[in-house]
């Protein structure tokens, strides 16, 4: 599976990528929407993990732009909201099907990735 991780906190996104690699999952990472779009233009990804709030281009806008080129790509959103309840409000209409609240357990992230990609097959 080809994974793209996008979060403006470089130390977070690079560490998640490293930890996924120890679990047999190769993930590319970017720290902005612009960087992520460049990666998407050059490689096909199955799934992207996007931070909701990023400078200039947030995760929701980035999803829309990626979807234009890759309509089949799946998304998990990361949020710094206090709780899942806080985050749920108003996000289903915006196209947020899957999300995790920071800090994220790597096992929970992997589980969610596998569940989403299994559903698609």
């Amino acid at each position: 599976m080809q994974i793209l991780l996008v979060d403006d906190e470089e130390e977070l996104v690079s560490t998640i990528a490293e930890r996924l690699s120890y679990r047999g999952i190769e993930a590319d990472w970017a720290t902005s929407g612009e960087e992520a779009l460049k990666l998407v233009n050059n490689k096909k990804y199955d799934l992207a993990v996007l931070d909701i709030k990023m400078p200039k281009m947030g995760g929701l806008k980035l999803k829309k732009l990626i979807n234009k080129k890759c309509p089949d790509m799946k998304f998990i959103f990361l949020t710094g909201h206090g709780s899942e309840e806080d985050f749920k409000e108003g996000t289903t209409e915006a196209g947020v099907d899957y999300y995790l609240v920071k800090p994220v357990k790597i096992e929970a992230l992997m589980e969610k990735m596998k569940t989403i990609l299994k559903q698609e097959r």
């Binding site: 130390e11 977070l12 560490t15 490293e18 710094g80 920071k102």
Partner: peptide
């Protein structure tokens, strides 16, 4: 502030996880 602290906790959490790995 709570969003920013969540981000910091997430980074510390991943680095602690990395030490565990």
């Amino acid at each position: 502030i709570s969003h920013e602290i969540k981000n910091i906790m997430a980074i510390i959490n991943e680095n602690a996880g990395l030490i565990e790995d």
